[in-house]
Amino acid sequence: MFWKKQLPLIIVFMMGLIMTVQYFIPHHVSKWVYVNYVDWAIVIAIFGAFLGYFSFLRVHITRIRKKTSNWVFSIITLASLLIMIVFALIDGKGSDSLFQNMFLYTSAAINATVFSLLAFYISSASYRAFRAHSAQAVALLLAAVIMMLGRVPIGDKISFWSAWGIPSINTVSQWILNSPNMAAKRAIALGVGLGSLLMTLKIILGIERTYLGN
């Protein structure tokens, strides 16, 4: 029990304490602890990544072995992975290598296209979201429309009222971004900050221990 449960919790507490204290004490030992912690964390993460790669391979190999639905696409996934490794072995990783070109013209291109695909779906989503049922939904709709128009040159072009000294769409969009939007984001950031603070304290004090598993 001690080796499996209490000792890990003692390590968590001690390490938490050491790393917190080193921040507040400007001493060469503190700096040494900080520098070595960064190195150690990287080395542990390197081995941790192996766990992720193994899990990825296991999922796809299991799908192929059990011939679950769409198992053929697992073969394509593994084949693509293998091709990347072979390309790196035969041609290196230089700027115009097979490895870099394969990544740029397949994965990077596909990712950019998938994100651009959202331009279409976001339109239908906005139709559903913006059916102004309440005054607050109207506020959301107005802020979004002003923001969209304010990001393109047409926003200034159609702001004919700016000739009378009334702020243009671009100016209003900038104000929304810097004032009410900033206030909302800061309230959320403070909530996240306080939540993170409590979570780190719970981990150091051993109250939160789900990461240890069963």
């Binding site: 790393m19 912690y37 150091i204």
Partner: peptide, 29 residues
């Protein structure tokens, strides 16, 4: 694996704690 996790979580939390107070709370306030 709990020892490695304990080291990572403990040191990571201790590392994050003052920085969260600094950037996530104090700077925002």
């Amino acid at each position: 694996s709990r020892y490695a996790l304990a080291f990572t979580m403990g040191a990571g939390s201790g590392f994050a704690l003052p920085r969260v107070i600094q950037a996530g709370v104090l700077q925002q306030l």
